[in-house]
């Protein structure tokens, strides 16, 4: 067979794909909404983070399942989890969306919804987590930037985060790349916090509801498992 027809058919296929506008990266969910409940007061937080800065149920990355509160800021949370949980390695950047009514006077606040992009931090790539080889724990904290923290009279100074596991996420540990296990990632970070600050500073439930329950299931290379409960971690 001549090469030309192949080239033409390939070009036509590419054109069809371009018209379809498909994206291989983002995930699709049926319960995109908001973190709600008595803790949110005047503020708003989307219950998933996003692949790009576009709110759409087929553009989500992972569920929001952590909240750091009382005296939290993005930098202190990252420093604390690096020192006390080995979550120090950067990852790829995703996007959180939120509305914080606190910064009203300066004009640089986020009182009408804004985005924050963050690559988050993960444990050693190709490390071992709960006996699973080639696995790392990855969380991404979000807050309007600046000021890198939110405030309300329920949570005090707070930031929220998504979390998941990565498996075989590097050429250093070849194998089929898989992602997800959100509930397990949340538990690892909760355990890090308990080991360091004690049970009085970490709760694996919250009056704030993530509204992002995901039953255990595979979707391509992604294993979804999320209770919808938001783990509370207190920064004193």
């Amino acid at each position: 067979m001549s090469r030309r027809p192949l080239i033409l058919i390939t070009a036509a296929s590419l054109l069809l794909l371009a018209l379809a506008g498909g994206s291989a990266q983002a995930h699709s969910v049926g319960n995109l909404g908001y973190v709600t409940g008595s803790g949110m007061n005047e503020d708003g937080v989307r219950n998933y983070d996003f692949d790009t800065q576009r709110v759409a149920s087929d553009n989500v990355d992972w569920p929001v399942n952590l909240i750091f509160f009382d005296n939290a800021s993005i930098n202190t949370v990252k420093a604390d989890l690096c020192t006390h949980g080995d979550l120090c390695t950067g990852g790829s950047t995703k996007n959180g969306r939120m509305d914080d009514e606190a910064p009203i006077a300066s004009g640089s606040g986020c009182s009408n919804w804004c985005w924050d992009a963050d690559s988050g931090s993960k444990t050693y790539v190709c490390g071992t987590v709960w006996g699973y080889d080639a696995t790392d724990v990855h969380y991404r904290p979000y807050s309007p930037n600046p000021p890198d923290r939110m405030y309300n009279t329920y949570w005090g100074f707070y930031v929220f985060a998504s979390s998941h596991w990565d498996k075989h996420d590097s050429s250093l540990c070849p194998g089929t790349s898989q992602y997800g296990w959100n509930e397990q990632a949340e538990k690892v970070i909760w355990q890090d916090w308990v080991d360091w600050r004690g049970t009085g500073a970490a709760w694996n439930n919250s009056p704030t509801d993530g509204n992002n329950y995901q039953p255990k299931h595979w979707a391509g290379d992604n294993y979804w498992d999320n209770s919808g409960e938001v783990t509370r971690l207190r920064v004193p």
């Binding site: 709600t36 005047e42 503020d43 309300n152």
Partner: peptide
Amino acid sequence: LVLSSAAV
């Protein structure tokens, strides 16, 4: 969107 009490 449900907000328990709101804001400012």
